Amino acid sequence: MPRKGENIYRRKDGRWEGRYVKGRSKEGKALYGYVYGKTYAAVKKKRLERLTEVPKSGSILRKADLTDEDYHFSVLSDLWLESIRPHIKQSTYNKYQNLIHSYIISELNEIQVSELTAEVLQSKCNHLLECGGKKGCGLSTKTVGDVLSLVRRLLSYAASIGYPVNCSGKEFSIKQSSKEMCILCRSEQETLCRYLLQHRDERNIGIFLCLFCWAAYRRIMCIKVG
């Protein structure tokens, strides 16, 4: 059986086999090419290399050169990552790869790119906010915002190489929750200052100096206003 969303199979002889469309006959019939390897990862890489050769030979990846399984986010994300890899830092590449495999593929790979709507995408983002993460306690709005931003880039890339897309991901946004500012009363400020002076280190002295400078600034402003 193939991995979901990919034309990669385990053969009876133990090897892995990957299938891809290498061209079309005069009648429009798909002509398939095959790659083989000892591991799933090796075949996936070879198949991806064959797919990425198509955009190099023309302006876009033709819709006719894609099979149904190529329209899933696992294949799309691999193509996109390979296209941007020469232009970004390794740390950025690792971040994108982690977000894609941790959240995007797990949430969206059951859905073909052409079937994704703004309503479905928003529902998936809400699910990540409520139940995402290893513990299922929900992800931060910052993380889900990063995931949504990445999906938008994937959808934009999909359209540029001939994938049919139904939404851009820009139909909604993730509202960032702002933390409520805590204002200390005079007695609490005095308690904090005593603690900082009693436990002197570079960090605490720095905090104390910031508080002192802020207090001095407020007094100066009050004098000017008065």
Rank of each mutant, 00 (worst) to 15 (best):
G58W: 09
L184Q: 07
C222T: 14
A158F: 01
C167Y: 01
L116D: 03
L108E: 05
R153S: 07
G136L: 04
E27T: 07
T191I: 02
H199F: 07
A64D: 13
V54Q: 15
R186D: 14
G18Y: 10
S168Y: 13
K134F: 12
K26T: 10
N126Y: 06
E49P: 05
S83P: 08
I84C: 12
R186Y: 04
T191M: 15
E119G: 02
Y217M: 11
K56A: 10
I174P: 06
E180C: 09
L48G: 11
G14P: 06
I205Q: 06
W80K: 03
D146Q: 13
L154R: 05
E119T: 00
T92H: 08
H101K: 08
R203H: 03
C213E: 10
M221W: 04
A158C: 04
S74L: 11
I100F: 13
I183D: 08
V147R: 02
G14I: 10
V43H: 13
E82P: 00
T52R: 13
Y32G: 06
P164Q: 02
R47M: 09
R47V: 04
L116A: 03
K175S: 08
K89H: 14
E69Y: 13
S25A: 13
K134Y: 01
C213M: 14
P86Y: 12
Q176P: 00
C182L: 14
A64I: 02
V35Y: 00
N98R: 15
Q90R: 06
A158N: 04
L209P: 01
G206H: 02
C131E: 15
M221N: 09
S25P: 04
G132S: 08
F212M: 09
S114K: 15
